[in-house]
């Protein structure tokens, strides 16, 4: 049996919201202290959806630490520390969502460049093979005439 303090309606709603976190979108009308309890249960995709759906309210005070965790999980602790170091050196500050998005873009760009380079090499190799292929010649040697 549940304890008496577990029957508070706010708690029941928070539990329900956590169970249905995949359906959450715009949360701009929800108090911060309740979002603090719900949002840590989101996956990366769910949190991204909520961030993009919630316009007119800055969720970063709640989600920044969550994005740092996602960043660390995806790109490693070394990369995360490197980013922190760089920001300190340059005396700039970005939210971890911004950093995550920038990193994803950069990785995608690097991948595309690598794919392009590979495709170019294949093309060059094909051309080289093509140039070394034996070609049948249609020209006939001059027939030897008897004098």
């Amino acid at each position: 049996m549940k304890r008496k303090d577990q029957t508070c309606l706010v708690d029941l709603c928070v539990e329900k919201a956590i169970d249905n976190v995949k359906y959450l979108g715009d949360v701009s009308h929800v108090d911060h202290h309740m979002l603090e309890r719900i949002l840590p249960h989101c996956t990366l995709e769910q949190l991204m959806h909520i961030e993009k759906s919630t316009q007119g309210m800055d969720l970063s005070p709640i989600t920044d630490k969550l994005w740092k965790k996602f960043f660390e999980k995806q790109f490693g602790i070394n990369c995360t520390n490197e980013v922190v170091k760089k920001m300190k050196e340059k005396r700039v500050s970005f939210t971890w969502l911004q950093l995550y998005e920038a990193k994803v873009k950069k990785v995608a760009q690097t991948e595309n460049e690598a794919v392009d380079r590979l495709a170019q090499r294949y093309k060059e190799e094909d051309a080289r093979k093509q140039s070394r292929q034996i070609k049948t010649c249609t020209k006939l040697p001059p027939s030897k005439r008897r004098f």
């Binding site: 709603c13 329900k16 919201a17 169970d19």
Partner: peptide
């Protein structure tokens, strides 16, 4: 609690 009412109900509660 119906899922679609959750957030509004939570705020009222």
């Amino acid at each position: 609690i119906e899922p679609e009412l959750t957030l509004e109900l939570m705020m009222a509660a």
